[in-house]
Design a protein around this nucleic acid. Sequence first.
DNA 1: TCTGGGGTCCTTCATCGA
DNA 2: TCTGTCGATGAAGGACCC
Length: 412
Amino acid sequence: MSRKQQVPKVASALGADDTGCPILHVDMDAFYASVELIERPELVGTPVIIGVPGLRGVVLSATYEARRFGVHSAMPMTRAMRLCPRATVIPPSHGKYAEVSRGVMEIFHAITPQVEPIASDEAFLDVGGARRRLGRPAAIGEAIRAQVAERYGITCSVGVAGSKFVAKLASRQCKPNGLLVVPADGVVQFLHPLPVGALWGVGDRTEQALVRLGIRTVGDLARVPVATLQRELGQAAGTHLAALAWGRDERAVTPHVPDKSIGAEETFPADVDDPEAIRRELLRLSERVAARLRAGGHVGRTVSVKLRRSDFSTITRSRTLREPTDVAQEIYVTACDLFAAAGLDRVRLRLVGVRVENLRGADTSARQLTLGERETGWREVERAMDKAVRRFGPDAVRPASLVRPKFDGIDV
DNA sequence: TCTGGGGTCCTTCATCGA
DNA sequence: TCTGTCGATGAAGGACCC
């Protein structure tokens, strides 16, 4: 589901010497759309867009037939429909995608435990340790493609290289339904003709900044002194990009990356300026975040709120608590304080969000009551709510203020 | 044209204590 | 005692990723 610009196809696969190429990047092709077509085979070969039409939604995924009209993921649905009015629009079913994603990850784990998922539809694999058992990396990549196709009837693309970042570029280069090996001694030859925007970490803004400096390709970038890049892009980004331009990327495949924050946000169907309605939404989001914290065994110390005005300008406000929490009421009270302190009363908002950062394991954080403080009992109440939800479903229990329609006059 | 939702990481600035 | 410096931490914003 890459949303970066398509880089031009290379004419040659640069041979197939995969010695020194233990890293695989596996990327499902048009994942959500492909999963939907499993149940709708009559739509194969036609333009299909996954997204919610009408509302303020964006395209989540599109078949390659729709992409030919200029449709791509993250594009506003209204624009996508103008570009491709014939497209069949299917609302997303995240549960279905998660199920296929789990199955695909199982296939990866049967190859090697060194699997680093990047998203539901892509992962890095380090197959260095699987060679003796399963053969060369390119052969392992082909085996994965065959297994995914056989089990789910969908295709994926595989990049094979000596580093994560080159493997990722390679998989993008051979999409859809391809496999590309970038040999260790062909990295510079592979990278330098690519546009700078193809690099991981170069988005629109950075690309514009680089183009202003006359840097259009990775090769151009490689010839610029590191100090210049650091001055223009900042210390970290400058150093990082200078290394990438020469194919240097030492990052290892890391199977377990701990969560650093958990949040939830929602765009209103129409802008809202009623503080009561905004506080109700903050409560709903706090409930969601707290439930996910508890489900993951996390507590967090910093609560932040995100407030986006109707003109899309966005502010965030955060507060670090004395003790970490996974209690919705504590998160909600803090979020309301932050909202009040932001001084946006009666300002029209299009989005609000709640996030908890500074996470740690709930089991490693014994809560310390200060002198005179009384345990509120909210934690116990919310754990009981978790049990009810697990047993009777998500609508089994909710705060009284959320029993009313979510937004005044708009029940969504 | 009009921009979702879930994240990570970096930079800058302010504050505080040693 | 005062001042300057340095590092840690927190807060805010922004760019980027899928």
